[in-house]
Structure formats: C-alpha cells, structure tokens
C-alpha cells in the first residue's frame, strides 16, 4: 500500500485521463457514464449498466477493455445458460491412458467480464456470479480457484423487456458498486456517432493502462482523507434511505428497505476518487452527492406502494440528500 503522495496522485489523474481519452476516441458523449465506470473500476467495483438496446453499453465495455490492457471476456446471458458455462466445469480428460477430471475455467477467469443482458439468465446462473463478484474466486467440486486481479464485472440489462427476463435479486444487486443508467445521446453526439461508425474505417483504441495501474489507482484512492463532519454526512445519507425515525416522509411511504453499509463503503470510495479527479486531497460533501445516485439507486427496495406508484429511486435519494443537508 502506498501512502498518498503527489506522484501517486499525479499517476492517478494522468492514468485516468489517458483511459478516458482513449475511450473517447471511440465513444461519443456519455462522459459521466465513462467517468463513473472508470471510478468503479479504480475502486475495484462492479458496474450494472442499464439502458435500452443500441445505446453503446457493450461497446463501452469493449472499449474499456481495449483501453486497459487486461484480459477481457464476454458472456451473453440467455435463459439456457448454465452456471458451469459461467464459472467453468470439470471435464474427463484422457492423459496417457489415464482418465482424470480436469477443471476447465469458465469465462469469469479474466480481468474484465462483460455479462451482457444479465437479466436474461435464470437466477441459478445469476447466483453463480455472486461468489465470483464478492470473493473474486470460484469453487467447483470442492476446489476453490482464485481469480486474477484486477477483476471487474460489467453487466448490462435492458429495462423494457420484461418477457423472459429474471430480475436480479437484491443480494446480487447489492454487489454492484454502481448502477448506471445509460441515456440517449444528444443531437450532436448522435451525429458524431453516425460519422464515426458509418464509414469503413473503425477507430482503433490503443491500450493506455495496465492492470497494475488500476490496482495502484485504487490504493491511491483509499488514502484520500475524509473529515468526520463529511463522514457524518455520508452516514446520515445512507441511514436516511431506511424508513426509520428522521428519514423523509417519501422514504417512509415508498421504501421497504434502504441501502446497506456496503453502499456507504462504495460511496466513500467513489467520493474519494471524485475528490482526486477534482484535484483535491480531501473528500467534500459535493463528492458524496455526486456519487449518491449511482451508488444507491439499485439498493433501495421499494414497498408495494412505491412499486405501484412507479416511484423512481432517484427522486427518493434526492429527498434523502435534501434531508441530510438540513
């Protein structure tokens, strides 16, 4: 672990900027999404990207994989996908006349895993990712296999297709560092997308960072100090998502369960990264506010009334932020 120092901070900012620039050679717009994804990667977190088809979710992950020189694999989740198709399985091998079982690693054995349309797989297959995402290891036939670091899961899901989908359970959702909602590009961005992808030449993304850079960036992030008052604000924010005393009225009305302490950990790490990106060496309330929506929106479990009313978690989180400031 390296103590925070000016070179470490410079390395963080420089590497982050390089990766962002490399991604931007292919991706048009979506700067906030790119930043959030990169922050999550630096913090060692997994990202759930949600958006309608064709917005570039998969392209974004592919581009990131190209920009960071890490092993990249992709799993297209389908209803008939089995857990062994994800984590790997033991197969019978004939070695010099001797037959023995040999572990055949699945696609999770990589540094960057794209779980495309994750909500199309059955819960059983989705659950196979649980241990992998949290513990960064795989257990097959009583044998535990550790994954190489860094390891990130970038999952995508389509919000409008409900038929044949299996919503992710709360426990699995909580394992995602951020849930990012990919929106439509603006008019100008749209035109740029058409310009870049309409011709024969495809933009080539070169690798500008390695896995070790990502690990070092994560260590730098964790050294950014936070004042007790700011930490207190963060705790109030997370606790405010629960329908308990002191939380806003909308939370009481529409939320069944609030965010877990893991959410607080994610917010703190992301806020630290935000502070560094802003050129500061301390965490501010603004940093926490800026990461509250992606860190909390998938961790709020709405009540029946909230579901029936079609309440968006983002509006509830804004209420909590307003209450925590007062």
């Amino acid at each position: 672990m390296t103590a925070i120092s000016e070179p470490a901070v410079d390395h963080f900012k420089e590497t982050f900027s390089r990766i962002r620039s490399a991604i931007s050679t292919f991706m048009v717009g979506q700067q906030d999404i790119i930043d959030d994804v990169l922050i999550a990667i630096c913090c060692g977190g997994h990202v759930l990207l949600e958006g309608v088809p064709g917005l570039g979710k998969t392209s974004l992950v592919n581009t990131i994989a190209q920009a960071i020189d890490v092993q990249f694999k992709r799993i297209q989740f389908t209803p008939d996908l089995l857990p062994s198709d994800v984590v790997g399985t033991q197969i019978l091998m004939d070695r010099d006349g001797r037959r023995e079982l040999e572990f055949q690693p699945g696609p999770v054995f990589c540094n960057l895993l794209l779980a495309d349309e994750i909500n199309r797989a059955t819960p059983k297959t989705q659950a196979a990712l649980l241990e992998t995402m949290q513990e960064k290891r795989v257990t097959v036939a009583n044998h535990t296999h550790t994954l190489a670091l860094p390891f990130f899961v970038m999952a995508t899901q389509n919000p409008i297709e409900n038929d044949g989908t299996y919503p992710l359970p709360e426990a699995q959702l909580d394992r995602f560092f951020f849930k990012l909602q990919v929106g439509l590009p603006s008019h100008d961005e749209f035109k740029q997308i058409l310009d870049r992808t309409g011709g024969n030449s495809k933009p080539h993304v070169t690798a500008v960072a390695h896995g070790a850079d990502i690990i070092r960036m994560g260590e730098t992030i964790r050294e950014v100090p936070i004042a007790p008052e700011v930490q207190d604000y963060l705790v109030r924010l997370v606790r405010g998502t629960h329908p308990t005393e002191g939380s806003p009225k909308s939370i009481h009305q529409f939320v069944r369960h609030g965010a877990s302490p893991r959410a607080g950990q994610a917010m703190l790490a992301a806020a630290r990264a935000r502070a560094l990106l802003d050129g500061r060496f301390h965490v501010a309330r603004e940093d926490i506010d800026s990461v509250a929506l992606p860190a909390l929106r998938h961790r709020l479990i709405l009540s029946f009334e909230g579901e029936a009313e079609g309440i968006k978690p983002d509006s509830l989180i804004k209420d909590v932020m307003a209450a925590a400031k007062s």
Binding site: S5, I226, A227, D278, R280, H282, A284, E286
Partner: peptide
Amino acid sequence: LKDAITSARHLAATAPEDPATELQ
C-alpha cells in the same frame, strides 16, 4: 471551498505530519 476548511482543521489536529495533510 468544498469542505476544505473542515478537512484541513481535522487533518491538522489528527495527522499534522501526514503527507495528505500537507497536500491538502
């Protein structure tokens, strides 16, 4: 100042010799 004074007071009181304090 984005909580800089708050953080500076905290750092100066708790870790005056820390490099982060100087950077901040």
